[in-house]
Design a protein around this nucleic acid. Structure first.
Lengths: 218, 218
DNA sequence: TAGATTGTTAATCGATTAACAATC
DNA sequence: TAGATTGTTAATCGATTAACAATC
């Protein structure tokens, strides 16, 4: 076939939502669904759903719609959920611990193999059967253990330093919770979770109406 | 003037990043900056920066650029950071505690006034001087205390129920960490933080190249 | 003044929606 | 077969980039 490579990020960011809704349908024993029905539940247009799915193959059938289980499994594969991933968390503060305890990630195939911090009060403590190690051992650990995804939960001042260690040790995917932008080579993927930016967006929207009321007044 | 209201979400989601970069420049005693220089740092095009800022007013000056402090403060106002907000967190598990402990939000004007859970083992414990209350008291609390932003950190099964209480009590902004979509009236703003979706996006991108390699092969 | 850089219009690019022939 | 619904092309809409006159 030779599909035109590279799916736009707009499409990619919708995929997990498809996966979630299809999972729910599956648990409710729904066997088949049309783009129209799915549209009503998920809130994308039927046209967009068909366009999105067609980027990856012909999953539907004219006159029938989509088989829920088959589509769920296909999207799972597209998202890479047919594989397992080893992860490490660096920074065992509040967010690091929250992420470590999110057992749902484990179920999706993301296995926490190490957790690191530099705070002596935390080193040695166990979180979900993993002993928090000294961050000074991180590089050594990464050389001896295969790790797919590095998770950064340290304060922003230390984030780049950790990213550099990740890159040096061959990690190709970084999940970054530090409120800063990381510099990494082109072949390393960074996915940011910037909580402050999310909160400020909410704050903006809460004030938007008023903002323009003032503008008009002046 | 009567500006054309409604800024696109694409622009809105860039605002916090402008605010963050300008804050850094300010701390580094940079007085003025051109869209070109800012472009090189922040990674948006100079043209986009000028377009974005012009949605809100004429903040720059031809031949000079933008005054860093003035622009920082203007964007702060646009984001609503000249005000204070009372917040409550419902769900004192890992994420709830992490959000509660994020002292930086406090500095931005978001004041945690209550934290709730239904787990008897957590009720009564203090987090940042706030005693965790029984979620059965939530509605009563909201009637007696002004709250601007409700933060949902409960499991997805209970999220809608909490959202309903928020809506009933007049809260107009919800920060939702539960991995589900909430149903609320049009005048209530929901900002989602869906960690799983972020992780699955990362997973997708990590596998993308291989995905299309397979496609071509078949 | 000359140089720099904005504000803003016009051109381009990309994403979404509409339409419909193909086909189950 | 007739009805339903996809896959896919074309049309529309919106966002980004380029260009440049205005102006500090």
């Amino acid at each position: 076939m030779g599909k035109k490579t590279m799916i736009s990020m707009a499409v990619v960011r919708r995929l997990p939502k498809y996966y979630r809704y299809l999972g729910e349908l599956l648990r409710n024993d729904v066997e088949r669904i049309s783009s129209k029905e799915l549209s009503e539940r998920i809130g994308f247009t039927a046209s967009q759903i068909r366009q999105d799915l067609n980027n990856f193959g012909d999953f539907g059938q004219q006159g029938y719609g989509y088989n829920v289980r088959a589509l769920y499994e296909e999207i799972g594969k597209i998202l890479g959920l047919n594989k397992n991933y080893n992860t490490v968390i660096v920074g065992a503060g509040n967010i690091g611990q929250a992420v470590a305890n999110y057992t749902n990630f484990e179920r999706l195939g993301f296995h926490l193999v190490g957790i690191f911090d530099r705070n002596p009060k935390l080193i040695g403590i166990s979180i979900r059967d993993k002993v928090i190690q000294d961050v000074d051992n991180l590089e050594e650990f990464l050389k001896n253990n295969h790790v797919d995804i590095g998770i950064i939960c340290v304060p922003k001042e230390q984030a780049q330093k950790i990213a550099d260690i990740f890159v040096k040790c061959g990690i190709k995917a970084i999940w970054n919770f530090a409120p800063t932008d990381l510099n990494v080579p082109d072949d390393v993927i960074v996915e940011n979770v910037h909580l402050s930016e999310s909160l400020l967006t909410l704050s903006y929207r809460l004030n938007e109406a008023e903002l323009f009321k003032e503008k008009i007044g002046r």
